Amino acid sequence: QSRIPRTHTSPAIIQLLKNLSLPNILQKNKGIEAENDARSAKTLNNALDPVAHPQPGSEVASLITIDPEDLARLRVPSFFASPIPIEFPQSLYDTEICVAVPLPFFLTRNLRSLVDEASTLPTVKSNPAPGETKGTYILNIEKLSTRFGKELTLTCSQWSEAAANMWSFQISRDKLGSEGEHASWFEKHFNFFNMLNKRDELYDAWKVMELEFRQDHRSRHLKFSATDYDKALGLTEESHKLRKEFQDFVNSSQTGIGR
Rank of each mutant, 00 (worst) to 15 (best):
T120D: 04
S82I: 09
T7V: 11
D216P: 00
N194P: 04
F249P: 01
L152N: 13
K244E: 12
W185D: 08
N140C: 05
Q170P: 12
L20Y: 05
S113N: 07
W206K: 06
R199L: 06
G180M: 05
N140K: 04
F246K: 12
L144E: 07
F249G: 08
S10E: 15
N165T: 07
K18P: 06
P130S: 02
S40H: 01
H53Q: 13
L211T: 11
D204A: 15
E35M: 02
A118K: 10
L16Q: 15
V115E: 08
V250Q: 09
R109E: 05
R214T: 10
L111S: 02
L107M: 08
S184K: 11
D230S: 05
A205D: 12
A34P: 08
D116M: 08
F79R: 01
T108S: 13
K241C: 03
P128E: 00
E187A: 14
T236H: 01
H53D: 15
S157E: 12
A163K: 05
L202F: 06
L107G: 04
K42T: 12
R259A: 12
E161H: 02
T65H: 07
F88K: 06
F193K: 14
R112S: 01
S219C: 06
K175I: 10
K244A: 11
L144A: 08
S58T: 14
V250C: 09
A163R: 06
K244L: 13
A162H: 11
Q215A: 12
L202D: 15
N197G: 14
L103Y: 08
G57Q: 08
D216Q: 13
K134P: 03
L16H: 14
E238M: 01
H182I: 09
F80D: 14
F88E: 07
M166H: 13
R199A: 10
E245L: 04
P56K: 07
A118L: 09
Q158E: 10
L74W: 06
D204Q: 15
L71K: 14
T65I: 11
S219Q: 12
M209L: 10
I257R: 09
